[in-house]
Design a protein around this nucleic acid. Sequence first.
DNA 1: GTGGTCTAGACCACT
DNA 2: GTGGTCTAGACCACG
Lengths: 136, 136, 136, 136
Amino acid sequence: MSIEFDNNLPIYLQIMQYIKRQIVTGTLKAGDKIPSVRELAAELQINPNTVQRTFQELEREEVVETKRGLGRYVTSEESKIMTIKKEMAGELLERFLTGMQELGIKEHDIVNIVADAVAEGKQSSHRDGRGGTVNE
Amino acid sequence: MSIEFDNNLPIYLQIMQYIKRQIVTGTLKAGDKIPSVRELAAELQINPNTVQRTFQELEREEVVETKRGLGRYVTSEESKIMTIKKEMAGELLERFLTGMQELGIKEHDIVNIVADAVAEGKQSSHRDGRGGTVNE
Amino acid sequence: MSIEFDNNLPIYLQIMQYIKRQIVTGTLKAGDKIPSVRELAAELQINPNTVQRTFQELEREEVVETKRGLGRYVTSEESKIMTIKKEMAGELLERFLTGMQELGIKEHDIVNIVADAVAEGKQSSHRDGRGGTVNE
Amino acid sequence: MSIEFDNNLPIYLQIMQYIKRQIVTGTLKAGDKIPSVRELAAELQINPNTVQRTFQELEREEVVETKRGLGRYVTSEESKIMTIKKEMAGELLERFLTGMQELGIKEHDIVNIVADAVAEGKQSSHRDGRGGTVNE
DNA sequence: GTGGTCTAGACCACT
DNA sequence: GTGGTCTAGACCACG
């Protein structure tokens, strides 16, 4: 239950993603209690300040709510969770499509590449940069 | 012929992408001369050292070659350029697919989402986080 | 604990060698903390940017790891250190042998020259270009 | 009859070495005429200024003599050539030994490593960083 | 306090 | 004129 940190991205952002992922995939459900700052810091072997910052940001995004004296909880609004999921998917999609278009890959080919990759992915778990009709 | 800089990403990385994109899309061809450090710095209104760093990185990736006293050139190996293109596309694809799977979106749906987005993209240039069948 | 800089080689490369040597000879061990940029810059009386560049390169070679906000550390993989040592020795050997062969010195003589030099080296610390059977 | 230039070393130094090597290995003999600046520049596809500088340096080292109106010649003193050879061998040896000692390799092992490498070299032309008892 | 980035300006070797 | 290196000093994000 630990994270491998990628040194290029701030740790607090990585933890945010980690928690959001747990919420979005249902590991943490609406209204669930979230581990305390101290607890999570110990578990992930990082500075409590860093965890604190993570929660601050999650609160700003209304993903998490503080109940004074009780602890922190996943937002109880189910709709909020769906919104987060859509946002995250939208961002991923946006970044992918603009990136591919900047490479000069035609829209039609993009669909094929994804379809191929998904088909491949079903037998071999490791995907390796080959993605169908990338060649000109 | 200028770049709008995004403040979150280091300028030198943004210039790298800018140049790689030019190479990959054929605006800069194998063996072409690249603008000099001073020239590009003046054009983009940034410090020559920043441009210098950009080129240093590109050279390390063997995208660019230096001929001392003469200037810098796009690598003359055409194959290297194709490799870069494939690498860049592969990275984009990888990041997209793993991200979507972490969100718990099924592979089959991913293909649909992309197909829908591409179809949409043809009339409205601005894409906004809505991406087809993201809903459960 | 200071370095005499040779004006022909860039300072940042000299510091790289200096640090690699410390690692390879065990003065710095796997996982040890490395002096901070500012610290080393002050100690060696050079600009922090120069030290920064040194560390950048060492990181690219995976000799050193950065833990953000904490400092830099010698790679924790012992095997990496052995690899570096072998690489450095191999390069030295390669350069020496090809150089000698270009001079038309026979392989058998090369061994003798080295053996003589080593034998000499034990009494006189200063070696001066005489190297045994260089004569024809 | 061309040179692959290594971008880290000034071209004029590489040509110097190239010519010295020819002299030392007997391709160019004492008193032989050396190609003219223009000729060599054309042959090596470089700027005549660069060749000019090469010859200037070689002259300063008394490896080459100018006879006005006739051209440039390899020094006629055979002893000078021997001296050069010894110098070059001595430099190579010095650099090799100090390098190996800095790596903490014992003198006795150095001899073994060289002996091994020479023995190996007789069957396989490509040497690859393995050099015998580099391991501790 | 630590590293990462950027600016400004300088000097040098090389072509 | 070109790139390579270095200094000086600044600001920022991170822990």
